[in-house]
């Protein structure tokens, strides 16, 4: 296998320089958005450009950070290491944006950070992003025991997140549970498969949100929709010829 290496490009260098040289909030927003668009459109994202976007997360400029997060999500796996390596425990804002980026990328290396964020971040918008991210971790490339471990941990985190006091976090937990449930629902698996046991817990958790336990109607409605989607898969499988 040949690994493509990013070619130095004058265009990339120019866009990075524009981010670094921005001297106003509006200028930083424009430059970050331009670099993010450029990265999203490139086959092999340049590491220096990724690093530059990761730094933007720490500049206390929400507009620029939103653009940077979009660009980093578009980079996918290539952005995971730089994001994890640059986590700053003392810059709450930067950390919150990194959680959002990792949630959107869905790489399993972000699992621990997402768990921590859902359990204890003070910002509901960060817990919300973490819950959604825990439901869309891509672990297809892992061996079965690794997959089970990741999904088991994600499920545990989401079960606990279902007790969150903010309705919007519980809504995101329901969306996360649906994602996890759809990943686990595999027609090839028998009743004794460990995935089947996890799926049963996903349904249980969704049932708790669907019933009167959750006081917020939109959360109950979303849980009902999620259960309907999981049931539709189960019915379709049962009807398929063996």
């Amino acid at each position: 296998m040949t690994i493509a290496t990013p070619q130095p490009s004058p265009e990339t260098d120019r866009l990075i320089a524009a981010v670094e040289g921005a001297d106003s909030a509006a200028g930083l927003l424009t430059a970050s958005a331009a670099l993010a668009r450029h990265l999203a459109g490139s086959q092999v994202p340049a590491p220096a450009a990724i690093t530059s976007l990761v730094q933007v997360l720490g500049f206390n400029n929400p507009g620029a950070a939103v653009a940077a997060v979009d660009g980093l999500i578009a980079c996918g796996e290539a952005a995971v290491e730089p994001l994890l390596a640059n986590l700053d425990a003392h810059n709450y804002g930067a950390r919150a944006w990194a959680v959002r980026a990792l949630a959107g990328i869905g790489d399993v290396r972000g699992l621990e950070l997402l768990e921590q964020a859902l359990a204890s971040d003070i910002g509901p918008s960060v817990r919300r992003a973490a819950a959604r991210g825990l439901g869309q971790l891509r672990c297809g490339a892992l061996p079965q025991d690794g997959r089970l471990r990741v999904r088991g941990r994600a499920l545990e985190a989401l079960e606990a997140g279902g007790e969150d006091g903010e309705w919007v976090v519980r809504y995101a937990v329901v969306v996360g549970l649906e994602g996890l449930g759809l990943d686990l629902a595999d027609p090839q698996l028998g009743a004794m498969a460990p995935e089947t046991a996890l799926l049963a817990r996903v349904r249980q958790a969704l049932n708790r949100h669907q019933d009167g336990d959750d006081t917020v109607p939109v959360v109950r409605l979303r849980a009902r929709q999620a259960l309907g989607r999981l049931n539709a898969i189960a019915t379709r499988e049962a009807m398929e010829p063996q």
Binding site: P62, P124, S125, W167, V168, Y171, V216, P217, V218, L221
Partner: peptide, 15 residues
């Protein structure tokens, strides 16, 4: 505007 506020508004549209 912030997604947090859009979510609150959309909750209103649903409910």
């Amino acid at each position: 505007a912030e997604n947090s506020l859009k979510l609150i508004a959309l909750r209103g549209l649903v409910e």
